[in-house]
Nucleic acid binder design. Structure first.
Lengths: 103, 103
DNA sequence: ACAATATATCAAGATATGTTGATATATTGT
DNA sequence: ACAATATATCAACATATCTTGATATATTGT
């Protein structure tokens, strides 16, 4: 039950659904990518990414000073059904300006 | 997005997951059934049933002075996947005492 | 019409969750 | 070692959600 509620709780937030949708479309992204794509301060994004990671949706890969987040694969059937539903939502993210200083 | 969050929000609560699980196992139940099965005051149960109904999981059928709640059928794929997951949870409801005064 | 039963709704307080701004940690380049 | 960049964490406040107890509505039987 705890795992279920943690999973559900993670996607019970507008911001996190947007972030999941974005990562699903984009593949692997770093925090600054999201920070630039959404107009949100970094601490806010970092918090939401942690919640999505702890809930079993995302994994992190740290390379250099960057942390790259992506959807865990393969993913279990239940989370997959949630991701599928999120992907079907019409979400227009005002994909903004520049990326981060990745070289 | 609003519909998605309403659906998710409805199952983001321990009590409502228990109630959904119970109705799934029992079929059609009236409010007093739940009231007796769980040890909760009636206003609390009534509120949760309304949330589950508004989120598209339950339907009500009023007969006489009773309101019978049951899972909507057929149900869409996404909600079905949530119900499936809830049914797979180990939930022990201390199915208590008497039923209500149904004759 | 009245009393009893079943359910719904509301206000107030308790608890949980989200946002922000400040600060901590970690990595890279000079 | 130091400065710059990227990310994580924390405290304080704001907002949303849950619980309870009181009250409202609706149906049935006398």
């Amino acid at each position: 039950m705890d795992v279920f509620l943690k999973t559900i709780g993670a996607v019970n937030d507008y911001t996190r659904v947007e972030i999941l949708h974005y990562i699903n479309q984009s593949g692997e992204v770093c925090v600054c990518d999201i920070e630039n794509s959404f107009s949100m301060i970094q601490s806010r994004i970092s918090r939401h990414l942690k919640i999505l990671k702890d809930a079993g949706f995302l994994k992190v890969d740290r390379r250099g000073r960057w942390a790259f987040y992506s959807v865990i694969e393969p993913i279990d059937e239940f989370r997959a059904s949630i991701l599928k539903e999120i992907n079907s939502l019409e979400i227009n993210i005002s994909l903004q300006k520049k990326g981060c200083n990745l070289e």
